[in-house]
């Protein structure tokens, strides 16, 4: 049992580091590892993974907030979309065709992977022209990029499309149980014109809120098994703290390079899930 503890703990550290750097929840690593590697039931794995999302978010946020990478105003604005989306997703889950959704969201992710590949060499974006709402709500930010050694100022654009995408990303998380951060980073980076590192840090900040409602439900149902979740969550917490410190010193282009294969893999996995029963 101690061996399992240690292995699960190490798995958690790995998922935490990756999750913190990329702005994802790490469920993409934890769920398959717990179900395939440790023969755990899906419900237990998904419940543990949901608590891990909160651990990644909370653990990494401290460093990101200090370095001003997290944009709290943008986060609160977009959380309205993710939280109401997740709620809608949970409510309509019984009436929708999951397979079709998997394919639809998979194609969407594939497109954003392609888009990210196209712009992979950009270290920063061309001048973004902010829209009226962004100016009114002061959805801007400024941080010192430790990798580039200079200050980055930005103001987001396409505020409403961003919010709408977040609504659907929340709904996807509620309906499909995956995709906590994987839609959020491209939405901020590619649609709203936010710098990649700020997008990743802000996504990281937001995923904890989306996961919290789900985690409370799993707790109430008794799906969160302390002996499984305990070691993996502790690992993720430590991993996320370390990962966040690494991330602030990394170049955006390098982080993108890690992000792209995961994006492409998730896209394929989702499309596969959608077509495999046909």
């Amino acid at each position: 049992m101690v061996i399992t503890f240690i292995l699960v703990f190490v798995l958690g550290i790995l998922a935490g580091v990756v999750g913190a750097i990329l702005g994802l929840g790490g469920g993409i690593i934890i769920v398959p590892a717990l179900t395939l590697g440790f023969d755990m039931p899906m419900r237990t794995a998904v419940a543990a993974s949901t608590v891990c999302i909160i651990a990644t978010s909370t653990g990494a946020a401290v460093a990101f907030l200090r370095d001003r990478l997290t944009n709290t105003r943008v986060a609160i604005w977009l959380e309205m979309g993710t939280a109401t989306g997740a709620l809608t997703g949970a409510l309509v889950a019984a009436w929708v065709n999951q397979r079709l959704l998997f394919i639809l969201f998979g194609v969407l992710l594939a497109y954003s992977a392609y888009n990210m590949f196209r712009t992979r060499k950009e270290e920063h974006k061309e001048e973004v022209i902010p829209d009226a709402i962004s100016q009114r709500l002061k959805l801007k930010g400024s941080y010192y990029d430790k990798a580039l050694g200079r200050r980055i100022d930005y103001q987001v654009s396409r505020t409403i499309p961003g919010l709408i995408i977040m609504y659907f990303s929340g709904a996807a998380a509620g309906l499909l149980g995956i995709g906590a951060g994987i839609f959020k980073v491209p939405a901020m980076d590619q649609v709203m014109g936010m710098p990649f590192k700020a997008s990743s840090a802000t996504s990281n900040f937001m995923i904890g809120v989306t996961a919290a409602s789900g985690a409370v439900v799993y707790f109430a149902r008794g799906d969160v098994k302390p002996l499984v979740a305990g070691p993996v969550v502790l690992g993720v917490l430590i991993g996320a703290i370390v990962g966040a410190r690494l991330m602030v010193h990394m170049k955006a282009s390098k982080i993108r390079l890690f992000f792209m294969p995961i994006l492409a893999y998730t896209a394929l996995e989702m499309i596969y899930k959608g077509v495999k029963w046909w």
Binding site: T58, G208, V216, V224, L227
Partner: peptide, 12 residues
């Protein structure tokens, strides 16, 4: 462990 998980859950 459960207490720890609940504290974490409360942070967001």
């Amino acid at each position: 462990i459960t207490a720890g998980l609940l504290v974490l859950l409360g942070t967001p």
